[in-house]
Design a protein around this nucleic acid. Sequence first.
DNA 1: TATACCGGTTTACTAAAGTATACCTACTCA
DNA 2: TGAGTAGGTATACTTTAGTAAACCGGTATA
Lengths: 118, 118
Amino acid sequence: MTPTPKDHSECTRNLLPVKDALDILGGKWKLPIIIALTFGNKRFKEMQREINGITAKMLSKELKDLEVNQLVKRTVYDTVPVSVEYELTTYGKSLHKVIGELRTWGLQHRKKVLSKAE
Amino acid sequence: MTPTPKDHSECTRNLLPVKDALDILGGKWKLPIIIALTFGNKRFKEMQREINGITAKMLSKELKDLEVNQLVKRTVYDTVPVSVEYELTTYGKSLHKVIGELRTWGLQHRKKVLSKAE
DNA sequence: TATACCGGTTTACTAAAGTATACCTACTCA
DNA sequence: TGAGTAGGTATACTTTAGTAAACCGGTATA
């Protein structure tokens, strides 16, 4: 009835890395941004156009977060006027499988929901 | 420079299922609850003890959400007093791979962070 | 009688996430 | 000269997520 210490610690051990991942990927925009960048490097306004509904503030903030975590690299080109390009780092690309699984599950879920349909 | 319509629609097409998945799994407690249940069926207070920091209100609410989405099944036993058991449905168990990938990535990320160490 | 367990709900609150709008410099095009 | 682009920042606001604490009926234990 009472969880055994073993259960509890195993649960925690399994949970921690999942939480770590979600800290980085959580929120409304992180994955949309990452996914947008899997289609190629992009500039700020370009991303804003491509990701429906995101505001400049959020895009700016989220890109910073992703940069800090080294998933995204920001390059400023010394053109006139400056242009800024964002790209996925190798590390960012390592999320590929995670995103793939989420996508697969989401697709299947959508199919299920639609089949019981309203 | 301007995203091609193709890019944009491909991006959306890839994003939607991921969003669907995150709608269901998002928030602080959904995955902790699901992971706790992968270690076996559990009762309410038992889960509350096992999941560090969750309040009764959140546990109750999140379990309802998961039940609605058919990831978790709630069974009331007609004992005196009633006992209530929660279990993962087959559908809930289908998240196994998603969670596995998140966990793998999170573990590797943690290792990376620790190695640059503060 | 008092205390504690079970499975929650209710109320009130705070904190975090996200939005809307305006604004900034520097540049180009007509 | 005015409008539009790029790459943002600042301010103020709303909405949502989450917390803390009290409470409920019923049962059991001492």
